[in-house]
Simulated scan of single mutants.
Amino acid sequence: MTFEFLKHDIKQQKARARYRARQCVAEQSGREVTINGKQYLNFSSNDYLGLNHHREINKALQEGAERFGTCASGSSLITGYSYAHQSLENDICEWLNKPKCLLFASGFSANTAMMQVLGNKTCHIYLDKLSHASLIDGALASDAKIKRFLHNDTAQLSRLLSKSQTNTSAEETNNIIVSEGVFSMDGDQAKVSSLAQIAKQHQAMLYLDDAHSIGVVGEKGQGSSANTEVDVVMATFGKALATSGAFVACDESLADYLINFSRHYVYSTAISPALAWATKKSIELAQKEHWRRIKIQELSLLLMSKLSNKVKLIQSASSIHAIVIGDETSTLNVCQKLREKGIWLTAIRPPTVPINSSRLRVTITSSHNAKDINYLANCINEVIA
Protein backbone atom coordinates (compact mmCIF):
# COMPACT_ATOMS: atom_id res chain seq x y z
CA MET A 1 0.00 0.00 0.00
CA THR A 2 1.23 3.49 -0.82
CA PHE A 3 1.43 6.36 1.67
CA GLU A 4 2.56 4.05 4.48
CA PHE A 5 4.36 7.02 6.03
CA LEU A 6 0.99 8.37 7.19
CA LYS A 7 0.38 5.54 9.64
CA HIS A 8 4.09 5.20 10.47
CA ASP A 9 4.54 8.84 11.46
CA ILE A 10 1.34 8.92 13.55
CA LYS A 11 2.46 5.75 15.35
CA GLN A 12 5.78 7.44 16.14
CA GLN A 13 3.99 10.53 17.44
CA LYS A 14 2.01 8.39 19.86
CA ALA A 15 5.11 6.47 20.98
CA ARG A 16 6.91 9.75 21.76
CA ALA A 17 3.89 11.19 23.63
CA ARG A 18 3.60 13.92 20.99
CA TYR A 19 0.31 12.86 19.47
CA ARG A 20 -2.18 15.69 19.03
CA ALA A 21 -5.96 15.48 18.79
CA ARG A 22 -8.67 18.11 18.60
CA GLN A 23 -11.14 18.74 21.41
CA CYS A 24 -14.62 19.96 20.50
CA VAL A 25 -15.49 22.96 22.66
CA ALA A 26 -19.19 23.32 23.42
CA GLU A 27 -18.88 26.74 25.06
CA GLN A 28 -16.05 28.99 26.18
CA SER A 29 -15.18 32.36 27.61
CA GLY A 30 -11.91 33.86 28.78
CA ARG A 31 -12.53 32.18 32.13
CA GLU A 32 -14.38 28.91 31.49
CA VAL A 33 -14.58 26.20 28.84
CA THR A 34 -17.01 23.28 28.41
CA ILE A 35 -15.60 20.12 26.80
CA ASN A 36 -17.27 16.70 26.65
CA GLY A 37 -20.03 17.93 28.93
CA LYS A 38 -17.68 19.09 31.70
CA GLN A 39 -16.90 22.68 32.68
CA TYR A 40 -13.33 23.70 33.45
CA LEU A 41 -11.50 26.82 34.55
CA ASN A 42 -9.85 27.81 31.29
CA PHE A 43 -6.19 28.82 31.42
CA SER A 44 -5.43 28.07 27.75
CA SER A 45 -7.37 30.88 26.09
CA ASN A 46 -5.78 33.70 24.10
CA ASP A 47 -8.80 35.90 24.86
CA TYR A 48 -6.48 38.03 26.98
CA LEU A 49 -8.76 41.06 27.41
CA GLY A 50 -11.88 38.96 27.96
CA LEU A 51 -13.62 40.59 24.98
CA ASN A 52 -15.05 37.43 23.46
CA HIS A 53 -18.87 37.50 23.80
CA HIS A 54 -18.76 41.26 24.52
CA ARG A 55 -22.21 42.66 23.73
CA GLU A 56 -20.93 45.73 21.86
CA ILE A 57 -18.67 43.63 19.63
CA ASN A 58 -21.47 41.17 18.92
CA LYS A 59 -23.77 44.07 18.08
CA ALA A 60 -21.16 45.54 15.72
CA LEU A 61 -20.80 42.14 14.04
CA GLN A 62 -24.54 42.00 13.42
CA GLU A 63 -24.56 45.57 12.10
CA GLY A 64 -21.64 44.77 9.82
CA ALA A 65 -23.35 41.65 8.47
CA GLU A 66 -26.54 43.56 7.71
CA ARG A 67 -24.71 46.46 6.06
CA PHE A 68 -21.83 44.73 4.23
CA GLY A 69 -22.68 41.02 4.28
CA THR A 70 -20.82 38.17 5.95
CA CYS A 71 -18.47 37.52 3.01
CA ALA A 72 -16.19 39.83 1.06
CA SER A 73 -17.00 37.80 -2.07
CA GLY A 74 -13.63 38.47 -3.66
CA SER A 75 -10.01 39.42 -3.13
CA SER A 76 -9.10 42.94 -2.08
CA LEU A 77 -7.93 43.71 -5.63
CA ILE A 78 -11.20 42.71 -7.29
CA THR A 79 -14.37 43.64 -5.37
CA GLY A 80 -13.51 42.39 -1.88
CA TYR A 81 -12.17 45.64 -0.40
CA SER A 82 -15.15 47.28 1.30
CA TYR A 83 -15.65 50.42 3.34
CA ALA A 84 -15.57 48.20 6.47
CA HIS A 85 -12.03 47.10 5.61
CA GLN A 86 -10.89 50.62 4.77
CA SER A 87 -12.35 52.00 7.99
CA LEU A 88 -10.64 49.32 10.09
CA GLU A 89 -7.32 49.97 8.37
CA ASN A 90 -7.65 53.69 9.10
CA ASP A 91 -8.37 52.97 12.78
CA ILE A 92 -5.28 50.77 13.05
CA CYS A 93 -3.09 53.39 11.34
CA GLU A 94 -4.26 56.02 13.82
CA TRP A 95 -3.87 53.62 16.77
CA LEU A 96 -0.29 52.63 15.89
CA ASN A 97 0.71 55.90 14.20
CA LYS A 98 1.49 54.17 10.90
CA PRO A 99 0.89 55.51 7.36
CA LYS A 100 -0.59 52.31 5.93
CA CYS A 101 -2.23 49.05 6.96
CA LEU A 102 -3.26 45.91 5.07
CA LEU A 103 -5.58 43.14 6.32
CA PHE A 104 -4.85 39.42 6.04
CA ALA A 105 -6.86 36.26 6.71
CA SER A 106 -4.60 35.12 9.56
CA GLY A 107 -1.38 35.88 11.37
CA PHE A 108 0.24 32.82 9.79
CA SER A 109 -0.71 34.07 6.34
CA ALA A 110 0.52 37.60 7.09
CA ASN A 111 3.89 36.47 8.46
CA THR A 112 4.49 34.01 5.63
CA ALA A 113 3.52 36.63 3.06
CA MET A 114 5.79 39.27 4.58
CA MET A 115 8.85 37.03 4.80
CA GLN A 116 8.39 35.87 1.21
CA VAL A 117 7.90 39.40 -0.12
CA LEU A 118 10.73 40.95 1.90
CA GLY A 119 13.00 37.98 1.23
CA ASN A 120 14.51 39.32 -1.97
CA LYS A 121 17.80 37.73 -3.05
CA THR A 122 19.58 40.94 -1.97
CA CYS A 123 18.19 40.62 1.57
CA HIS A 124 19.42 39.03 4.78
CA ILE A 125 16.77 38.03 7.33
CA TYR A 126 17.82 37.81 10.99
CA LEU A 127 15.32 35.79 13.02
CA ASP A 128 15.17 35.46 16.78
CA LYS A 129 15.68 31.77 17.59
CA LEU A 130 12.18 31.55 19.12
CA SER A 131 10.36 33.20 16.23
CA HIS A 132 6.99 31.71 15.28
CA ALA A 133 6.80 28.85 12.78
CA SER A 134 5.07 31.11 10.24
CA LEU A 135 8.05 33.47 10.21
CA ILE A 136 10.51 30.61 9.81
CA ASP A 137 8.47 28.97 7.04
CA GLY A 138 8.08 32.26 5.20
CA ALA A 139 11.77 33.06 5.45
CA LEU A 140 12.81 29.59 4.25
CA ALA A 141 10.48 29.94 1.26
CA SER A 142 12.09 33.27 0.29
CA ASP A 143 15.22 34.04 -1.71
CA ALA A 144 16.91 35.77 1.22
CA LYS A 145 19.90 34.60 3.20
CA ILE A 146 18.72 33.58 6.67
CA LYS A 147 20.44 33.71 10.02
CA ARG A 148 18.91 32.99 13.44
CA PHE A 149 20.32 34.69 16.52
CA LEU A 150 20.05 33.32 20.04
CA HIS A 151 16.84 34.27 21.82
CA ASN A 152 16.90 37.95 22.82
CA ASP A 153 20.69 38.01 22.34
CA THR A 154 21.08 41.50 20.89
CA ALA A 155 24.88 41.34 21.22
CA GLN A 156 25.03 38.34 18.89
CA LEU A 157 22.62 40.04 16.50
CA SER A 158 24.91 43.08 16.33
CA ARG A 159 27.91 40.87 15.60
CA LEU A 160 26.08 39.03 12.83
CA LEU A 161 25.00 42.29 11.20
CA SER A 162 28.49 43.78 11.41
CA LYS A 163 30.01 40.64 9.90
CA SER A 164 27.44 40.64 7.10
CA GLN A 165 28.11 44.26 6.20
CA THR A 166 31.84 43.58 6.12
CA ASN A 167 31.44 40.63 3.76
CA THR A 168 28.85 42.03 1.32
CA SER A 169 28.86 44.83 -1.20
CA ALA A 170 26.86 48.02 -0.65
CA GLU A 171 23.99 46.99 -2.89
CA GLU A 172 23.47 43.74 -0.90
CA THR A 173 22.85 45.21 2.54
CA ASN A 174 19.07 44.97 2.80
CA ASN A 175 18.86 43.60 6.33
CA ILE A 176 15.65 42.66 8.14
CA ILE A 177 15.52 42.00 11.88
CA VAL A 178 12.57 39.80 12.87
CA SER A 179 11.24 39.14 16.35
CA GLU A 180 8.05 38.53 18.27
CA GLY A 181 6.97 41.29 20.65
CA VAL A 182 5.83 38.82 23.30
CA PHE A 183 7.01 35.26 22.63
CA SER A 184 4.11 32.87 22.36
CA MET A 185 5.54 29.93 24.31
CA ASP A 186 7.69 31.63 26.96
CA GLY A 187 5.68 34.82 27.48
CA ASP A 188 8.80 36.97 27.76
CA GLN A 189 9.16 40.21 25.82
CA ALA A 190 11.61 41.19 23.11
CA LYS A 191 14.16 43.90 23.82
CA VAL A 192 12.36 46.16 21.40
CA SER A 193 14.27 49.37 22.20
CA SER A 194 17.60 47.61 21.70
CA LEU A 195 16.38 46.00 18.47
CA ALA A 196 15.26 49.39 17.17
CA GLN A 197 18.62 50.93 18.03
CA ILE A 198 20.51 48.10 16.30
CA ALA A 199 18.25 48.39 13.25
CA LYS A 200 18.95 52.11 13.02
CA GLN A 201 22.69 51.60 13.43
CA HIS A 202 22.83 49.03 10.62
CA GLN A 203 20.15 50.64 8.40
CA ALA A 204 18.04 47.53 8.82
CA MET A 205 14.26 47.09 8.80
CA LEU A 206 12.70 45.99 12.11
CA TYR A 207 9.73 43.60 11.81
CA LEU A 208 7.68 42.69 14.90
CA ASP A 209 5.10 39.93 15.23
CA ASP A 210 2.89 41.49 17.91
CA ALA A 211 0.21 38.79 17.98
CA HIS A 212 0.53 38.35 21.76
CA SER A 213 1.26 42.01 22.54
CA ILE A 214 -1.50 43.88 20.74
CA GLY A 215 -4.21 44.98 23.15
CA VAL A 216 -2.18 43.84 26.17
CA VAL A 217 0.96 46.01 26.11
CA GLY A 218 0.92 49.82 26.17
CA GLU A 219 -1.31 52.44 27.77
CA LYS A 220 -3.82 52.05 24.93
CA GLY A 221 -2.94 48.50 23.99
CA GLN A 222 -0.78 49.50 21.02
CA GLY A 223 1.55 46.59 21.67
CA SER A 224 5.33 46.45 21.70
CA SER A 225 5.69 49.46 19.43
CA ALA A 226 3.90 51.73 21.94
CA ASN A 227 7.11 53.49 23.00
CA THR A 228 9.55 52.49 20.24
CA GLU A 229 9.61 53.16 16.51
CA VAL A 230 9.16 49.87 14.64
CA ASP A 231 9.19 49.71 10.83
CA VAL A 232 6.65 46.91 10.35
CA VAL A 233 4.11 45.58 12.85
CA MET A 234 2.06 42.44 12.28
CA ALA A 235 -0.67 41.50 14.75
CA THR A 236 -3.71 39.26 14.87
CA PHE A 237 -7.35 39.95 15.72
CA GLY A 238 -8.07 36.45 17.04
CA LYS A 239 -6.43 36.83 20.44
CA ALA A 240 -6.87 39.94 22.61
CA LEU A 241 -9.18 41.58 20.06
CA ALA A 242 -11.55 38.59 20.01
CA THR A 243 -12.42 38.48 16.28
CA SER A 244 -10.46 36.94 13.40
CA GLY A 245 -7.83 37.94 10.85
CA ALA A 246 -4.63 39.95 11.03
CA PHE A 247 -2.98 43.15 9.84
CA VAL A 248 0.36 44.51 8.73
CA ALA A 249 1.09 48.17 9.53
CA CYS A 250 3.95 49.75 7.59
CA ASP A 251 4.97 52.66 5.37
CA GLU A 252 3.36 53.54 2.04
CA SER A 253 6.05 52.04 -0.20
CA LEU A 254 5.93 48.63 1.47
CA ALA A 255 2.12 48.60 1.43
CA ASP A 256 2.15 49.40 -2.29
CA TYR A 257 4.69 46.63 -2.88
CA LEU A 258 2.53 44.11 -0.99
CA ILE A 259 -0.56 45.03 -3.01
CA ASN A 260 1.36 44.32 -6.18
CA PHE A 261 3.62 41.39 -5.29
CA SER A 262 2.29 39.51 -2.23
CA ARG A 263 0.63 36.35 -3.52
CA HIS A 264 -1.10 35.82 -0.16
CA TYR A 265 -2.71 39.24 -0.42
CA VAL A 266 -3.42 39.29 -4.14
CA TYR A 267 -5.00 35.84 -4.39
CA SER A 268 -6.86 35.50 -1.07
CA THR A 269 -10.48 36.46 -0.50
CA ALA A 270 -10.58 39.43 1.86
CA ILE A 271 -11.65 38.84 5.46
CA SER A 272 -15.34 39.10 6.29
CA PRO A 273 -16.42 42.76 6.24
CA ALA A 274 -18.74 42.00 9.16
CA LEU A 275 -15.72 40.85 11.19
CA ALA A 276 -13.80 43.96 10.12
CA TRP A 277 -16.67 46.10 11.40
CA ALA A 278 -16.71 44.17 14.70
CA THR A 279 -12.93 44.55 15.05
CA LYS A 280 -13.30 48.33 14.96
CA LYS A 281 -15.36 48.04 18.14
CA SER A 282 -12.78 45.64 19.65
CA ILE A 283 -10.02 48.16 19.10
CA GLU A 284 -12.13 50.96 20.56
CA LEU A 285 -12.73 48.92 23.72
CA ALA A 286 -9.10 47.80 23.94
CA GLN A 287 -7.91 51.41 23.81
CA LYS A 288 -10.22 52.88 26.44
CA GLU A 289 -10.59 50.02 28.95
CA HIS A 290 -7.11 50.07 30.44
CA TRP A 291 -8.42 48.31 33.56
CA ARG A 292 -8.28 45.04 31.62
CA ARG A 293 -4.50 45.33 31.20
CA ILE A 294 -4.05 46.34 34.85
CA LYS A 295 -6.04 43.31 35.99
CA ILE A 296 -3.88 40.95 33.92
CA GLN A 297 -0.77 42.44 35.56
CA GLU A 298 -2.22 42.12 39.06
CA LEU A 299 -3.34 38.52 38.57
CA SER A 300 0.00 37.59 36.99
CA LEU A 301 1.88 38.91 40.01
CA LEU A 302 -0.49 36.97 42.27
CA LEU A 303 0.22 33.73 40.40
CA MET A 304 3.98 34.22 40.63
CA SER A 305 3.75 34.90 44.36
CA LYS A 306 1.65 31.78 45.03
CA LEU A 307 3.62 29.17 43.11
CA SER A 308 6.03 26.93 44.99
CA ASN A 309 9.78 27.28 44.50
CA LYS A 310 9.67 23.73 43.10
CA VAL A 311 7.71 25.02 40.10
CA LYS A 312 9.95 26.06 37.21
CA LEU A 313 8.27 29.25 36.00
CA ILE A 314 9.72 31.36 33.18
CA GLN A 315 9.56 34.99 34.33
CA SER A 316 7.09 37.02 32.31
CA ALA A 317 5.33 40.39 32.43
CA SER A 318 2.73 39.33 29.85
CA SER A 319 -0.45 37.25 29.92
CA ILE A 320 1.55 34.09 29.15
CA HIS A 321 3.26 32.13 31.95
CA ALA A 322 5.23 29.03 30.99
CA ILE A 323 5.76 26.31 33.59
CA VAL A 324 8.45 23.94 32.35
CA ILE A 325 7.95 20.27 33.28
CA GLY A 326 10.51 18.52 31.06
CA ASP A 327 9.63 15.33 29.20
CA GLU A 328 6.42 14.85 27.25
CA THR A 329 4.94 12.02 29.33
CA SER A 330 5.36 13.86 32.64
CA THR A 331 3.77 16.99 31.17
CA LEU A 332 0.77 15.05 29.89
CA ASN A 333 0.38 13.44 33.32
CA VAL A 334 0.38 16.84 35.04
CA CYS A 335 -2.24 18.11 32.56
CA GLN A 336 -4.46 15.12 33.27
CA LYS A 337 -4.20 15.61 37.04
CA LEU A 338 -5.15 19.27 36.64
CA ARG A 339 -8.14 18.35 34.46
CA GLU A 340 -9.33 16.04 37.21
CA LYS A 341 -9.34 19.13 39.44
CA GLY A 342 -11.35 21.13 36.89
CA ILE A 343 -8.49 23.09 35.27
CA TRP A 344 -7.99 23.10 31.51
CA LEU A 345 -4.37 23.53 30.46
CA THR A 346 -2.68 22.31 27.30
CA ALA A 347 0.62 20.43 27.24
CA ILE A 348 3.05 22.19 24.89
CA ARG A 349 5.50 19.63 23.50
CA PRO A 350 8.19 19.34 20.80
CA PRO A 351 8.56 20.41 18.07
CA THR A 352 6.74 23.54 19.31
CA VAL A 353 9.32 23.79 22.10
CA PRO A 354 12.79 22.19 22.40
CA ILE A 355 13.17 18.59 23.57
CA ASN A 356 12.99 18.19 27.37
CA SER A 357 11.29 21.56 27.79
CA SER A 358 7.65 20.47 27.51
CA ARG A 359 5.48 22.78 29.55
CA LEU A 360 2.17 24.10 30.73
CA ARG A 361 1.31 27.33 28.95
CA VAL A 362 -0.81 29.29 31.43
CA THR A 363 -2.66 32.29 30.03
CA ILE A 364 -4.27 34.80 32.37
CA THR A 365 -7.12 36.96 31.11
CA SER A 366 -9.02 39.89 32.54
CA SER A 367 -11.99 37.52 32.94
CA HIS A 368 -10.19 35.62 35.70
CA ASN A 369 -10.32 36.63 39.35
CA ALA A 370 -8.08 36.23 42.40
CA LYS A 371 -9.99 33.13 43.57
CA ASP A 372 -9.28 31.45 40.20
CA ILE A 373 -5.57 32.22 40.44
CA ASN A 374 -5.27 31.00 44.01
CA TYR A 375 -6.99 27.74 43.09
CA LEU A 376 -4.76 27.31 40.02
CA ALA A 377 -1.58 27.91 42.03
CA ASN A 378 -2.64 25.50 44.80
CA CYS A 379 -3.44 22.77 42.27
CA ILE A 380 -0.17 23.23 40.35
CA ASN A 381 1.83 23.14 43.60
CA GLU A 382 0.05 19.94 44.59
CA VAL A 383 0.51 18.02 41.34
CA ILE A 384 4.11 19.12 40.70
CA ALA A 385 5.47 18.86 44.27
Results as ranks from 00 to 15, higher is better:
residue 314 I to N: 11
residue 304 M to V: 02
residue 290 H to D: 14
residue 289 E to M: 03
residue 321 H to W: 02
residue 328 E to K: 03
residue 286 A to G: 12
residue 287 Q to W: 06
residue 303 L to W: 00
residue 278 A to G: 10
residue 355 I to E: 15
residue 347 A to Y: 13
residue 327 D to F: 10
residue 311 V to C: 11
residue 298 E to W: 00
residue 339 R to Y: 10
residue 337 K to Y: 01
residue 355 I to N: 15
residue 309 N to V: 08
residue 307 L to K: 07
residue 338 L to F: 07
residue 330 S to R: 10
residue 351 P to K: 05
residue 341 K to S: 07
residue 279 T to N: 12
residue 335 C to R: 07
residue 286 A to S: 15
residue 349 R to M: 07
residue 344 W to K: 14
residue 313 L to E: 03
residue 280 K to G: 15
residue 319 S to E: 08
residue 317 A to F: 02
residue 330 S to Q: 08
residue 335 C to F: 12
residue 291 W to D: 02
residue 333 N to I: 07
residue 341 K to R: 14
residue 294 I to V: 06
residue 314 I to K: 08
residue 338 L to E: 05
residue 341 K to P: 09
residue 343 I to D: 01
residue 299 L to T: 01
residue 318 S to L: 00
residue 309 N to D: 12
residue 331 T to E: 05
residue 345 L to S: 07
residue 282 S to D: 08
residue 312 K to T: 04
residue 282 S to R: 09
residue 339 R to W: 13
residue 281 K to L: 10
residue 318 S to V: 00
residue 340 E to F: 13
residue 323 I to F: 09
residue 349 R to Q: 09
residue 320 I to S: 03
residue 296 I to D: 00
residue 350 P to H: 11
residue 290 H to M: 12
residue 304 M to S: 13
residue 285 L to H: 03
residue 324 V to Y: 04
residue 277 W to R: 03
residue 300 S to F: 03
residue 355 I to W: 15
residue 332 L to N: 09
residue 329 T to L: 13
residue 285 L to I: 08
residue 282 S to L: 05
residue 302 L to E: 01
residue 320 I to K: 08
residue 297 Q to F: 05
residue 298 E to R: 00
residue 293 R to K: 04
residue 349 R to E: 08
residue 338 L to Y: 04
residue 276 A to P: 04
residue 277 W to D: 12
residue 336 Q to L: 12
residue 299 L to W: 00
residue 299 L to Y: 01
residue 348 I to K: 01
residue 289 E to R: 03
residue 338 L to Q: 01
residue 280 K to N: 14
residue 303 L to I: 02
residue 314 I to Y: 06
residue 340 E to V: 11
residue 310 K to Q: 14
residue 306 K to S: 07
residue 335 C to T: 12
residue 278 A to V: 02
residue 291 W to R: 01
residue 311 V to P: 09
residue 316 S to W: 12
residue 355 I to S: 15
residue 306 K to G: 06
residue 322 A to R: 04
residue 296 I to Y: 00
residue 285 L to W: 04
residue 313 L to C: 05
residue 335 C to S: 05
residue 324 V to Q: 11
residue 315 Q to G: 10
residue 355 I to T: 15
residue 282 S to M: 06
residue 284 E to A: 13
residue 343 I to W: 07
residue 335 C to Y: 08
residue 287 Q to V: 02
residue 293 R to C: 03
residue 291 W to F: 10
residue 304 M to A: 12
residue 276 A to M: 08
residue 280 K to R: 15
residue 324 V to T: 06
residue 293 R to P: 00
residue 345 L to K: 15
residue 343 I to K: 10
